[in-house]
Design a protein around this nucleic acid. Structure first.
Lengths: 340, 340
DNA sequence: TACTGGTACGAAAACGTTTTCGTGTTGAAA
DNA sequence: TTTCAACACGAAAACGTTTTCGTACCAGTA
């Protein structure tokens, strides 16, 4: 159980000074070829690796980026993380992930923890509770400290920082337009309560598509799910009293529950009712019928977010530049829950 | 954009020494009530927070634990992470997650990176490639440095460390026994090639259950999937030429593909063929028919792993103690892919 | 008065690096 | 012989903490 080797130990062992060792290992011209070789050989033999913590302290940068997400057990977020990891690692950064579990308090605690030296910057998708409370002091604080911050997916307009979002509204509009093109006349939507920003935006897309096709909006065909844990029941109850031939759901689960409810009524998907979901997860692919969805390209979102952050991190000068918002296009993946 | 406040700045501002500030903030009795109040008030006003990096360097511990997993886009691993996060956060640790993407090289790089001061210990499930190559030098190195290491799920017997596993063999045996009890006579298994430790163990459970019931093993009913990316085709081809009335699959996806293949042949699940999977993910719950599975209790695995690691971290004395292996019991979740 | 002891604070070392700025030794030019 | 670079290395500061030790001051005691 030998502890890690330090410069000091090498110096003592080889009877030179710490500075000499450091310089030799960094190939400084100041050190003679001879000693340089000797030191490097020794370091290699005993597998010397510089201590990251000491480096971080010295350089005042950690080469790590902090990612804060509401929940990890969610396919979309894991794909985003994959994207972040990939570009971060390519550029020599590593990634710390913390979950807020959709709790405002945990989000604040995690951010404060990581902000005190552990990370150079943040990539975050805020907790539902934060959107609801509209308390953004922790985010502002980080920004004021001059720490780069990139928000993705669930972003907050009031915060001045880089953002990566998808065109929720357009994506939703495309989906609803698809339903219209397929001949659906009575199109329902299953969405969330309005304070969830993406839910709201997707609902807007629904409105827009209808309006653009001169279809009158029937508020009775809109379900705003209150309680995620009871969503299956809410959806079943809702559909049992409506007659629809097209359904747009703002996430994968709502879509699945909707299909099940429809099937229980003896109707067929997609023959009687076409269904389109949002977020392209494993479930959409494997479910039968497989689900037509608006795909979010999570990995690309993550990659873009990481790129934005790293650019800010490495542009120390001009870091006060204007903030960008990158919009990732959505795609429509057609599968078997819609007619062909 | 004010940079973070340091002890030194407070000291200068209040015209005392750095040591005084530090002591005052830590409520040392050495400092007079007066100055203590003054300093604390100032620190609070300007929201002073100690720099974690400096603390880590000083204390030679980082209060973070490194988690290395093969892939994150996998429901089982995300539940494990949830479990780890939860107990880690409770005890004041945070968690760094790195993915190996099932690549040996990336696993090595990530571990070396994190081992150089970034983390106090590791929780790891090794990459497939590592199991295949049987090259464990990076793991041994970490252990030799005296860094606590906990392995979970995909563990390596040769490494001497704490481990958290599930009773793969028993779990599989239970599942196959269930199929037998349900009256299946020709029970097939869809498993992985043998170097994946969990696949091998689950296959053993299959053998055991058959033997204990005096059923002759028919090697022709065993499919060892070679290529994950082509598993759907392999499974379809395999099943098209076998006649089975019971199927055990070592993971969720294999089970789903099996069901699809069976249904394509015009057979019904569970009436004609009963199917049981392994790993209880979203897919198992939502698929139709919903899937009877052996559940792995990922969150509990994670929690136990974190507990083991933290115990080692905090027991500096006696840290050479014997290593434990905790076995998490599996459960059998009965759903609609088996008869009732 | 001279000593003791307590109080309240500061100096400095330490953690492991990197980097700036000396400085002693050499060989060659003047 | 003296002077001056060039060379090869070391000392020390710095990053932000905590902690040990030292010490100035004062009051109380002998």
């Amino acid at each position: 159980m030998k502890k890690k080797l330090t410069l000091k130990q090498i110096a003592r062992e080889l009877d030179v000074s710490v500075s000499t060792v450091s310089k030799a290992l960094r190939d400084s011209a100041e050190i003679s070829e001879d000693t340089r070789q000797k030191i490097k050989a020794f370091a290699k033999l005993y597998n010397y690796k510089p201590n990251n913590i000491a480096l971080s302290l010295k350089n005042r940068k950690t080469k790590t980026i902090g990612v804060i997400i509401p929940e990890i057990v969610h396919h979309f977020f894991t794909t985003v993380i994959s994207g972040i990891e990939q570009v971060a690692n390519e550029r020599g950064y590593h990634v710390i992930i913390c979950m807020s579990n959709n709790s405002f308090d945990k989000e604040v605690i995690n951010m404060e923890l990581l902000a005190n030296g552990s990370t150079d910057g943040f990539i975050i998708s805020v907790a539902k509770e934060t959107q609801q409370k509209q308390d953004y002091h922790h985010l502002n604080e980080v920004v004021n400290q001059g720490m780069p911050l990139v928000m993705f997916d669930r972003v907050i307009d009031e915060i001045n920082c880089d953002k990566v979002i998808i065109d929720d509204t357009i994506g939703a509009k495309k989906a609803v337009q698809k339903l219209i093109d397929l001949g659906s006349k009575n199109i329902g939507i299953i969405t969330t309560v309005d304070y969830v920003s993406v839910g709201k935006l997707r609902t807007e897309g629904y409105y827009k598509a209808l309006r653009e096709n001169n279809i009158e909006v029937n508020e009775d065909l809109i379900l705003r799910v209150e309680d995620f844990d009871r969503s299956e029941e809410e959806i079943k109850a809702f559909l049992s009293q409506r007659k629809v031939d097209g359904l747009f759901a703002v996430n994968e689960h709502f879509a699945i529950y909707a299909i099940k409810a429809v099937q229980e009524q003896g109707l067929k998907v997609p023959e009687d009712v076409s269904v389109i979901g949002f977020t392209d997860g494993e479930l959409s692919k494997q479910f039968m019928p497989s689900l037509t969805t608006v795909s979010q390209h999570g990995a690309e979102m993550g990659a873009q977010a990481a790129r934005l952050l790293i650019r800010k991190l490495e542009n120390t000068e001009m870091e006060e530049g204007p903030h960008q918002t990158i919009i990732i296009e959505t795609g429509l993946v057609e599968r078997n829950s819609t007619k062909h």
